[in-house]
Design a binder for these strands. Structure first.
Length: 861
RNA sequence: GCCCGCGUGGUGGAAUGGUAGACACAGGGGACUUAAAAUCCCUAGGCCGGAAGGCCGUGCGAGUUCGAGUCUCGCCGCGGGCACCA
């Protein structure tokens, strides 16, 4: 926290010395009171149900932004609500502290990534604490703490022992000028971000986690995640990409060439095969390149550009005819050419395919380009037009008419044909049904300094050996420089030199560090025992796990969440988590992002230059230059469309910022920051404060007491439901309405005090400081944070009469007031007597009369 | 290119298949004030109409239904992810 100043809570004048709502005084006072009472410190307590709420921890960029405020306020609402409903709550905070920006800062501004990172953490902690989050700060850690990454290294060694880690070659983005590996984000339009040189793909030996071993399990278990959003589960299902297909081989016509093994999910279209395609990285392509300079040149062509799937998919489809031919498995007389194609991935299936251009658009485009044959294998039932410019790709469930299908099909769906073909090939003995996954193993090697060192040693005699656990953590050396590109660990004079953990002879450390996704794949488990001498402490993990509510950005829907699910399983296998924690997150909520307009000008070369919102007034910079306004997008440092919450907190207080980020948009949707919204939130909070401050005790009772109580119970019910279902904006709308009701009520002071006390309690999860102040002003006992959540009296929620709208032919024309439980027949009588209905019927009888009890009536004439 | 979302007044948004626009912002009008700020009250989707009322209206086009913002299909636009940004 920033210096809290003298604490008004203990001033002799009490809370009413203020004549208006003063957030800064209130907020520091109650933060001190919470700290004094230690009410957010979590400990095991079996007398209460536990509740673990976790928001995705932040990257310490140095400044918090509105996205953080929104994310952590949502988690805080849940945490405080659960505390009030009698739970033992764990709500921790930490830092995802390794990663590229620290190294970039070191390169750009000098200094050390460690100093930059810990400095940022201190700054951000200082910006976060004034938000008044109910966090147990005693559990805080950063992933770059040796105490954390040492435990991660220990687990890496455990994973090695269980066969969950291996090495293989994989492609990286290579900058041929800087002679360094580039991250995908450092490849801009196929060029290195610093050198500007065209990027190449290059193979390196890298470390991998065997996540593919868990593909089926990770897929099947999604079905049990009832409190995860469907969209996330769908994305993960598609990412894992289970498919059933046929694997078989084409024998080469030429001597000395091995059969080409292909995998296809559409074996039913084998009679439409046009050519056999192999990846540029296929062993056969490599072998041919050794003697054929044209093929070598073509392969080199294929290495151009970045490694992302997007880059590969969008690249122009290129092919090279090897001159080799293969025999069709169903007709040895039929030979097909073998092409090398840049769109075939070595990582998927066997790295070789057969192309059926009639029923695959990409194959068709390729065949038209290189003048290869197109053979229809099936037609629509009512249209036998041969394929022209567009491939015929009906859904697999649609029946089609087959042309001379070898398995004897005439009219059948694609799926039926696939199944029949696999069956046919297996019986005939030339192919086998194979289940494949799109999911690839997790490559975790990074050729960078600021990450967790991979704890292995390369020994000439013993090979690749894990470091001894007693030598952990393998610490990052501090004496490194970032004056040239590449990994400083690689060029460190002594750090690499270590004795082999097995034979003791001189050996070399691994210089790759781990992907930062590794760090974030188990932090949730570490929070249950952040100081343990082992990665976790089982009694603590057993008590606190699983995370009951996980909250974070939709941008993590696939990678982070999938990796975490894998890690939980691997940790469980190694004894670091209990069996029940295979799925570590019981419920997931994906919040929308905070967006903002982007302000851009261009430099002399026409390159974009971005500007922070505070540099822009009325569409102009301070020097009068007009900025180009680009529509709202995810806040990002590189685009500079970032809003600083610190200014908002200084101007209005944390409660206003919290109230605003919850009120203005549904939590799962993006929210655009607006200055006027914050102003309005602050006005409202001032109004609530005034209602409490002006409470006049003169009239103890009044004529409207009962109505106010009804409104109170209705609001308690609605707000409780709203919080439980993440409908924070709707809950806040109810609180606005209730405040209006109180302000206008004719009720006496007793009922008003009761209503305002309930209002304070209901607002407490969202605006905890103001709620404490109100609670104290109204004479509440102790802290409102510790007070039990109010309960709505069901008897006060029932309404005895309802207004039934009457529709005529689906359009609202009239309404009647009836007793809530009035019999359907009675309602019908009243409806038929209604003026508008009588007029519409014009003496006739209705065609249909629909009565939805308590909701609506529809008369069809 | 592929996968997943989203699209409602001037603005943010509300709405178990059942009165579209709750609640709020900006706007308009008024009260209080010497004046302003603050506060309070009224008003408010569009079009026609003095009013009563009517017609249109949830990105576009079809469909299912007594009834569609909500469900289905096809488009358009925007956003997220695409395995080395975190």
């Amino acid at each position: 926290m920033t210096t809290p100043g003298p604490c008004p809570a203990f001033s002799s004048e009490g809370p009413l010395y203020m004549s208006r709502y003063s957030a800064s005084e209130i907020e520091s006072k109650w933060q001190a009171a919470w700290e004094k009472a230690s009410i957010f410190k979590a400990g095991r307590d079996t007398s209460k149900p536990k509740y673990y709420v976790l928001e995705m921890f932040p990257y310490p960029s140095g400044r918090i932004h509105m996205g953080h405020v929104r994310n952590y306020t949502m988690g805080d609402v849940i945490a405080r609500y659960k505390l009030a409903t009698g739970h033992n709550v764990l709500h921790p905070m930490g830092w995802d502290a390794f990663g590229m920006p620290a190294e970039n800062a070191a390169m750009e501004r000098g200094g050390h990534p460690k100093d930059w990172t810990y400095g940022n953490i201190a700054d951000m902690r200082g910006q976060m604490k004034p938000l008044g989050l109910s966090i147990d700060w005693s559990r805080e850690f950063a992933t770059c703490d040796p105490e954390y990454y040492g435990q991660q290294q220990s687990m890496f060694i455990d994973f090695m022992e269980k066969g969950l880690v291996y090495r293989k070659n994989a492609t990286v983005n290579w900058d041929p000028v800087d002679m360094t590996v580039l991250a995908n984000e450092q490849v801009i339009d196929g060029k290195g971000w610093r050198s500007g040189a065209p990027v190449e793909r290059r193979e390196l030996t890298q470390w991998f986690f065997k996540i593919s071993d868990f593909a089926e399990e990770l897929l099947d278990s999604l079905d049990g995640l009832d409190d995860w959003p469907d969209k996330v589960k769908t994305m993960q299902r598609n990412w894992i990409g289970k498919s059933r297909g046929l694997q078989f081989s084409f024998d080469a016509v030429q001597d000395g060439i091995d059969p080409i093994e292909v995998y296809t999910t559409r074996p039913d279209t084998l009679m439409g095969a046009s050519f056999v395609g192999i990846s540029a990285d296929h062993p056969l392509a490599k072998k041919l390149a050794e003697t054929n300079p044209d093929i070598a040149a073509f392969r080199a062509d294929c290495q151009k550009g970045g490694t992302t799937e997007e880059a590969l998919e969008k690249a122009e489809k290129l092919g090279f005819d090897t001159g080799l031919t293969v025999r069709h498995p169903l007709n040895p007389e039929w030979t097909l050419p073998v092409w090398i194609a840049n769109f075939i991935l070595m990582d998927y299936g066997t790295g070789a395919i057969f192309a059926c251009p009639a029923h695959d658009q990409r194959d068709l485009d390729f065949c038209r380009k290189y003048d290869l044959p197109v053979i229809d294998t099936f037609f629509a039932l009512d249209d036998a037009t041969p394929v022209g410019a567009e491939a015929f790709v009906p859904p697999k469930e649609q029946s089609v008419k087959w042309v001379n299908h070898f398995a004897g099909l005439d009219v059948a769906t694609g799926q039926e044909a696939i199944d029949a073909t696999i069956d046919f090939a297996e019986k005939a003995g030339w192919g086998r049904g194979v289940t494949n996954f799109r999911l690839r193993d997790w490559g975790l090697s990074r050729q960078r300094y600021w990450g967790c060192p991979i704890p292995v040693v390369h020994c000439e005699a013993c090979g690749v050996m894990p470091e001894r656990k007693e030598n952990l953590p393998v610490r990052l050396p501090d004496d490194v420089s970032f004056d040239k590109p590449g990994n400083p660990l690689d060029r460190h004079p002594t750090w690499r030199d270590v004795p082999c953990p097995a034979c003791g002879k001189p050996a070399k450390r691994e210089t790759d560090t781990m992907d930062t996704f590794v760090d974030s794949s188990w932090y949730y488990a570490r929070f249950t025992a952040p100081d343990a001498e082992t990665p976790t402490s089982l009694p603590d993990a057993d008590y606190w796990m699983n995370v009951d509510q996980y909250i974070g950005g939709i941008e993590h829907a696939i990678l982070h969440l999938l990796y975490s699910r894998f890690f939980a399983r691997a940790m469980q296998i190694c004894g670091h988590l209990p069996e029940k924690s295979k799925e570590p997150f019981n419920a997931l909520f994906t919040q929308g992002m905070v967006t903002h307009e982007i302000y851009m000008t261009r430099d002399g070369n026409g390159r974009p230059v971005y500007h922070l919102p505070e540099e822009v007034t009325d569409g102009k910079l301070a020097d009068g230059t007009e900025v180009e306004i680009i529509p709202s997008a995810k806040m990002s440092k590189s685009k500079k469309n970032v809003v600083d919450p610190v200014n908002i907190i200084e101007a209005y207080g944390a409660d206003t910022a919290r109230w605003f980020v919850l009120s203005d948009s549904p939590p799962e949707r993006d929210v655009e920051w607006t200055a006027s919204g914050a102003e309005a939130a602050h006005k409202h909070l001032s109004r609530v404060w005034r209602l409490a401050a002006e409470l006049d005790a003169a009239e103890a009772t009044g004529p409207g007491d009962d109505d106010l109580r009804r409104a109170m119970h209705k609001t308690i019910h609605d707000v409780t439901m709203g919080i439980e279902s993440f409908g924070f904006n709707a809950a806040i709308a109810k609180l606005y309405a209730f405040t209006n009701t109180i302000a206008k009520a004719k009720a006496g002071a007793g009922a008003r005090r009761e209503a305002l006390s309930a209002l304070a309690q209901l607002m407490a999860p969202m605006t905890p400081h103001l709620a404490e102040e109100l609670w104290q002003m109204l004479g509440g006992e102790g802290l409102v944070t510790a007070a039990p959540w109010p309960k709505a009296d069901p008897a006060m929620l029932v309404e005895d009469t309802v207004t039934l709208p009457i529709q005529i032919n689906g359009k609202r024309r009239s309404e009647i007031a009836v007793a809530k439980d009035l019999a359907k027949e009675e309602v019908e009588k009243l409806v038929l007597a209604d003026d508008a209905v009588v007029k519409a019927l014009n003496g006739g009888a209705p065609k249909k009369l629909i009565v939805v009890p308590g909701r609506i009536v529809n008369v069809v004439v």
